[in-house]
Amino acid sequence: MSFSNSKIRIYGLLVALLSVLFVISLVYGSVSIPVGEVWNILTGQETTKIAWQHILLQSRLPQSCTAALAGASLAVSGLLLQTLFKNPLAGPSILGISDGANLGVAAVMLYFGGSLNQLTGFTANAYLTVVLAAFVGASLVLAIIIYFSTKVKSNVILLIIGIMVGYLVSSLISILNYYASADKVHAFVMWGLGNFSGVSREQLPYFAFFTLSGLVLSLLLIKPLNALLLGEMYAANLGVKIKRTRFLVLFCTGLLAASVTAFCGPVSFIGLAVPHIARLMLGTSNHKSLLPVTLLAGACVALLCTVLMIVPGSNTILPLNAVTPLLGAPVIIYVLLNRKSIQYFN
């Protein structure tokens, strides 16, 4: 009952796709490194070029790992929000949660000074401060959204409120920008374009710790998430402790979205679009398979984006947020146009 052939096929496909994309993202770049050499470097054997070793270990490997983790985190946080708000158009960037994380980071970067990359000398405290600031910002917006969700019944209205809160937060960021020095503003703008390569090899364990904790927590929430498909009253009647579940789901979303935003900048569309890709592939909204598939698909999509960022035949690398909408927006438009025939809208 729980594992049909088609589901096993989808898992297999995604794992294969993930591995292939991971390898491509290591090989392909402004400098291409042959697959054989990649293998040699990763397994610690002799390599012909020291530069390749440096590029691979210090830059590409952390970037690919970051992309996979960030993609999975954003996709899962989008799915959690869509289930909780019973709205297929909810997502961390739409509800203003990413903006909240932005504000936190902006406050640290613009007001207190120094970006993640510019910090000289690695101090765990500095990263912790930025992540914490992003988390506080995201939680603040989440708290506002939760407050309004108890006041307004309509999910469309709630979504619009989320967008408005996002604008308000953006205006605060503009004010911070206005009073900050030019170099800080530049650093913040660059950060705002989104980037999976901002996480260095030394920072990677911290990033992995935050995102993996969030992802594990989300997997533990599968049972109450399924009950929430029926709505909060039905779920309460089935013994789900609504307040606690709401808190855990939002905490998990906040942790995932905030860590990614703190380390990689605000990344659009992955959180919104990937859960739809997963549902369309699986044909179910049962979280038992939907959540793991969303997680894997998120990692794949993010890796695909890092590959697409590289303009072929040149040294140019496009900003991440120039690529994600190219993949995400068509998915959302497709879903909206076909909403009558897509089962989870009904």
């Binding site: 029926l230 709505g231 989870y344």
Partner: peptide, 12 residues
């Protein structure tokens, strides 16, 4: 209970 609450369960 069976309620009039709108569910989101079309996909299961």
């Amino acid at each position: 209970v069976v309620l009039t609450e709108k569910t989101n369960a079309g996909g299961i």
